[in-house]
Write a protein that binds this DNA or RNA. Structure first.
Lengths: 204, 204
DNA sequence: CGTAGGCTAGACAGATCTGTCTGTTAATGT
DNA sequence: ACATTAACAGACAGATCTGTCTAGCCTACG
């Protein structure tokens, strides 16, 4: 079952103004995230999206293609939500983690879409894994650039620790008490950054 | 599909010396962990275990019961692997995370069995989720006790941060470079513990 | 005007899933 | 010697899965 790589290479952007395609992606985002990927069949998705089966397979040659598209959409959502302009690097990092904290505690949060997907796709060579790897690479590189820009003395090591922190947050937000997890974000980030910028936030 | 709670309440311990049951559990441990739970059917397991279908359903009334038993076995394995006697609390904590680091980098590591299972069982009320919660409660309580025994000034907060660290490690060990992740363990733990006991380890 | 293509409805194939059931064999303990 | 029970083999039911295919509607554009 060779998976079409079109969605990965981002070749010819598939019809952008297709309502049916849009509905399918919306349904996939909601169902895959809420219930897991293997647990949601194509029939569920086309029913939720009110789309004919042939239409679905016209836009997504296989289920794996849809899964890749789903994760790529999550990826671009997060990139948009964390894009900041004209912000000092330290503040940018803190903001990054506050956004993660907010999302990780919002109603309906069910862990990180990428971590969850990885649990269902063990094969590192699988296209789904490559989308996941690309997202993590983006996040890690962003952190490193910010730390370097902030002239952090140990950017490389600290990048890795911030990634650890991120993964801990998204897991804990689902499996432990979300409120408690979220309350930890600021303190944990400042501790990892090495006691820089510990401005207590009275209004929280 | 009501799941039998026998495996949860640990009522009458099911036949302990049953080779067939043992083989089923071994197969479940290998297959569920390596490939995911929804991805492995009962037929695969009974084939791998060389057991008749009726025998399987005799020991495990439903697949969910087997999943619970699988996770409970993982739980007791980890408890055994981290049980230490006559060790100072700080050293115990460090040893705890070194074991996690070793496991998270060993060949065939595929993330945390509990985190992965949670990704496939979204419903917090599901028996599988309860086994997961029990394991996390155990780990968290153990950490807190050790920190209190070590007279750590901020045991509660530090417990939560160590849990974040643990989750970051098991996720990173699967999704990122295992060697790099493992090399971070000692430094991260000492940083979270607050610069206590930073004895450099020359032979590593 | 005509045609290409997005879309719909739904049957269909073939595999796989969980779980049930029948019936037989072997071991064990009283 | 007999009853109980574990374990065997494997057919079977019914649901669900991915993916294919036919046939036709409707709209937009050349």
């Amino acid at each position: 079952m060779p998976v079409t790589t079109r969605t990965l290479t981002g070749g010819p952007p598939p019809p952008l103004k297709s309502p049916a395609r849009r509905r399918v992606l919306d349904a996939a985002n909601a169902l895959f995230y809420a219930e897991g990927i293997h647990a949601v069949g194509i029939d569920r998705i086309i029913a939720e999206a009110a789309v004919a089966k042939a239409t679905f397979y016209h836009h997504f040659p296989s289920k794996d293609d849809l899964v890749c598209a789903y994760l790529q959409e999550q990826d671009s959502r997060i990139r948009r939500a964390t894009a900041l302009r004209d912000v000092a690097p330290e503040a940018h990092i803190m903001r990054l983690f506050e956004v993660i904290g907010e999302i990780s505690c919002g109603p309906g949060f069910r862990g990180c879409a990428f971590v969850n997907a990885a649990a269902e796709y063990p094969d590192h060579a699988h296209p789904v894994r490559q989308v996941i790897a690309a997202h993590r690479r983006w996040f890690r590189d962003l952190l490193r650039e910010l730390l370097v820009a902030a002239r952090h003395p140990d950017a490389e090591r600290t990048t890795a620790m911030l990634v650890l922190l991120r993964d801990g947050l998204v897991v804990g937000g689902d499996l432990d008490d979300p409120a408690q997890t979220r309350a930890l974000v600021r303190a944990a980030v400042t501790r990892v950054l090495g006691e820089i910028s510990p401005p207590a936030d009275p209004c929280e």
